[in-house]
Amino acid sequence: DTLEQTEIADPPALSNLSPGSLQLVSKLKNPSGSCSVDVSTMWWETAGCKEPCIITACEDAVSLWKPLDTWQWEKVYTWHFTEIPVLQIISVPDVCSLVCVALGNLEIREIRALLCSTDDESEKQLLLKSGHINAVLGLTQRRLVSSSRTLFDQQIEILTFAEDGGNKEKQFLMPPDETVLAFAEVHGMQEALLGTTLMNNIVLWNLKTGQLLKKMQVDDSYQASICHKAYSEMGLLFVVLSRPCANEREWLGSPVFQLIVVNPKTALSVGMMLYCLPHGQTGRFLEGDVKDNFAAAVLTSGTIATWDLLLGHCTALLPPISEQNWCFVKWSDTDFHLLAGQKDGSVFVYRY
């Protein structure tokens, strides 16, 4: 690969920022014959120096971009995939110089770790897991959780990476009797893990013992919800769910995310907040990301919307640029930026 460098893009027009708190700071162009699928950020170490890097993924390649001066980036490594397409990047907190990716067609068939050999700086791939994988999430303390189907049951597996990204430990959690579709860490309770299931239940595990602590039915109106984040406060669990099946004509507006409160002792829950689009905007949740108290979603309309979960309202709208719909959105793990991507490999970095 030749080195590729990005241009500094022009500042966005004010009209793009309605109601506005996003400022365009950088643009990466990753030309590829295949469809662009994901973006992420991570720390990468070279010669004892850790740098905040951007990872871009298209169906047949994953690239690592290192920062140059003044918001420019250069592509330094690319891992190629010829057999199974890339579906998503799996961000694993506390892991440095190692990228995890999920490969598959409609469902995840493999999870791989991407790294560079210290001897010759060449790109390497390690197969971490294969099978029919329903959900995967990177957890703090260099852990990765996945749920997969076998012929007779479901496996919930935790992989723990060593500090150098090498030698992995394996542990299993007790599976619930229905398919787990998504996981969320519980902020403020490091050993708790939460999941949402196909039949609309919330399940809770103890990560240390592997015990399944509780299965809780939430109200029918949360159907097909996916958990993104959970917070433990005052003996209650506050869970942020996305609502891909929300009715756009609900009297409250178009709910994209929802905050529910669950009492883990009684398994009772109530809806606390709906995060809707501003009046006049339509679209349903396609995909999104939640970090701290901020949520971002790509909508079926091709627009990106962000919410402050504490204030309860939409804070920014990012309509499609150059007549191209947005396809994916991520909050940066290395600073407070929003990364937004289009199918053709364009990734825009916004200061939030």
């Binding site: 007790m174 309770m189 050993e191 708790a192 809770l204 103890n206 013992t209 015990q211 399944l212 602590l213 509780k214 433990s232 005052m234 003996g235 209650l236 409160v261 669950v262 009492n263 883990p264 002792k265 009684t266 009772l268 829950s269 109530v270 809806g271 606390m272």
Partner: peptide, 23 residues
Amino acid sequence: CSKADLGPVSLNWFEELTSEAPP
């Protein structure tokens, strides 16, 4: 909604559920 709708709350719910759940 009110907190009363959720039943009695325990600050030690994680430890309590861990001791009640099957090993």
